[in-house]
C-alpha cells in the first residue's frame, strides 16, 4: 500500500491541476463553442441551431468595426513596438554608462496596470487641458491634438498608449538577444573590417530570428487580448469607434445580455489567437521533445 502510494505520489499531486485545466480550460472552451451554436440570449440554451450566431456576428457593423480596429491596432502596435524596441536595444548596446538606469526607465510601464496607463494617457491626451492646451499655451493657437475624441483617430490614441506600455519590454527582449550573439563571430567580422552597421544588419539581427518570433507572438497575443486599455482610455468610444473584439464580447456578455453573440465572438477571438500561437507552440514543443 505505502509502496503504491510512493510510486504514485507524482501522479496524485499533478491530478488536481490537470483536472482543473481539463474542466476550466478545455471544458469551458467546449461549453462556449456549444453555446455559440445555439439561439442563447439572456440565458443559455442548449439546442444546436447551426451557425446563426456567427451569421449575426459577421453581419453586425459593430463587429466589423471591432475587427477592423484589431487589424489597425494590432499591426501598428506590433510593428512600431518592434522597431522602437530594436532601435532602443541597439542604441543601449553601445556601452552606455547609465544603461542600467535607462533600462529601468524604459521598462517600468510594463509593471503598470493597463487601467493606470489608460487613465494617465486619457488625461494627457484630453484636448481641453492636455497636450493640445499645453502647445496652444506656448503660442501655437491652431495646434490640434484631439485624437481621443475623434472617432476616426481614437484608435491611434490607443495605439500610442499601448506602444508606450510594451515597447520597453520588446527592448529588453532584443537586448538579451543582442547579448547572446556569439562574440567570436562579431570579432571575426571586425577583423575582416566589416563596418558596425553592417555587422548588425548582416550578422546580429539575422541570428536573432527566434527572438523576433517570440516578440511577435507576445505582442500579437497582447493585442488580441487588449481590453483594459480601451476601457480605461476611450471606453470603446466615441460611439463604438474604438471597440475591439474583446470589448465587443464583454459588452454582449455583461451589458447587452446576448450570450450567443458573446460566445461566438469569443470563439472567433480564440481562432485568431490559435492561428498565431499553435504553429509556434507546436514547433517549440517538438524541439523540446527531441
Amino acid at each position: 500500500m505505502s509502496k503504491w502510494l510512493e510510486h504514485n505520489i507524482p501522479r496524485i499531486l499533478l491530478a488536481p491541476s490537470f483536472a482543473a485545466v481539463v474542466v476550466f480550460v478545455y471544458g469551458f472552451i467546449a461549453w462556449t463553442a456549444w453555446v455559440s451554436l445555439t439561439r442563447s440570449r439572456l440565458l443559455p440554451k442548449y439546442e444546436i441551431e447551426g451557425f446563426i450566431q456567427y451569421e449575426r456576428l459577421f453581419a453586425a457593423p459593430r463587429w466589423d468595426t471591432a475587427m477592423e480596429n484589431l487589424f489597425i491596432f494590432g499591426i501598428l502596435f506590433i510593428v512600431v513596438s518592434m522597431i522602437l524596441g530594436l532601435l532602443l536595444a541597439i542604441l543601449l548596446d553601445q556601452q552606455i554608462r547609465i544603461e542600467g538606469a535607462l533600462r529601468t526607465i524604459y521598462l517600468y510601464p510594463m509593471a503598470l496596470s493597463m487601467i493606470v496607463t489608460g487613465t494617465s494617457w486619457k488625461w494627457i491626451m484630453n484636448p481641453g487641458l492636455g497636450i493640445e492646451a499645453m502647445v496652444r499655451g506656448w503660442g501655437f493657437e491652431n495646434f490640434s491634438f484631439d485624437w481621443i475624441i475623434d472617432p476616426d483617430k481614437a484608435i491611434y490614441a490607443v495605439v500610442v498608449a499601448a506602444i508606450w506600455q510594451a515597447s520597453g519590454f520588446v527592448m529588453a527582449l532584443f537586448l538579451a538577444g543582442l547579448r547572446s550573439v556569439d562574440t567570436e563571430i562579431i570579432k571575426a567580422a571586425r577583423v575582416d573590417g566589416i563596418p558596425t552597421w553592417r555587422i548588425y544588419l548582416s550578422i546580429v539581427i539575422p541570428s536573432m530570428a527566434p527572438i523576433f518570433l517570440s516578440a511577435f507572438i507576445i505582442l500579437a497575443h497582447l493585442a488580441i487580448k487588449s481590453f483594459d486599455l480601451v476601457i480605461a482610455l476611450t471606453g470603446g468610444g466615441p460611439g463604438y469607434s474604438t471597440d475591439l473584439p474583446a470589448t465587443y464580447m464583454y459588452a454582449m456578455a455583461f451589458s447587452r445580455g446576448d450570450i450567443g453573440q458573446a460566445a461566438s465572438s469569443a470563439m472567433v477571438m480564440m481562432a485568431v489567437v490559435f492561428a498565431i500561437i499553435v504553429p509556434y507552440l507546436y514547433s517549440e514543443l517538438r524541439v523540446k521533445n527531441d
Binding site: V25, I29, W31, K225, A246, A263, M269, V273, I277
Partner: peptide, 14 residues
C-alpha cells in the same frame, strides 16, 4: 501550456 495562451473571453461565460 496551451491554457496560458487562450483569450480569457472564451471562459468568461461558463
Amino acid at each position: 501550456l496551451f491554457g496560458c495562451f487562450i483569450p480569457f473571453q472564451v471562459v468568461l461565460l461558463p
